[in-house]
């Protein structure tokens, strides 16, 4: 948690937010299963990216596959269920 206010004096004067939740809330800690991608079998349909409710799948710049943001992925498993190539596997967190 970055810049978490300690008292009301740390809060902004007006109800304006500092920044988005990306840095402050690492929701990846909620996970029990984590998705692992095998990009060699990826068909580049971006269905996993399209259905991710946590914006945690990033398409690689060169378009060769996807990358998972483990800081925020909650491990719901939608990507693994929807992947037509079955190249995303859910493995238990250690």
């Amino acid at each position: 948690m970055s810049r978490q206010p300690r008292s009301y004096k740390d809060l902004p004067l007006a109800p304006i937010t500092y920044e988005d939740t990306r840095e402050a809330f690492k929701t990846g800690s909620w996970r029990t299963f984590k998705p692992v991608v095998d990009n060699s079998r990826c068909k580049k349909c971006w269905i996993c990216w399209k259905f991710c409710p946590d914006m945690s799948i990033r398409i690689l710049e060169d378009g060769t596959g996807v990358e998972i943001d483990y800081d925020h992925c909650k491990g719901c498993g939608i990507c693994a269920t929807e992947c037509p190539a079955r190249c995303i596997e859910m493995v238990p967190e250690d």
């Binding site: 988005d20 939740t21 990306r22 929701t27 269905i47 399209k50 409710p53 914006m55 945690s56």
Partner: peptide, 18 residues
């Protein structure tokens, strides 16, 4: 991409998984 690439919601929100 199949839908616009622009993201206006940041990750780290408090929604339940799935």
């Amino acid at each position: 991409t199949p839908v616009p690439a622009e993201e206006n919601v940041a990750p780290g929100h408090m929604g339940c998984p799935g």
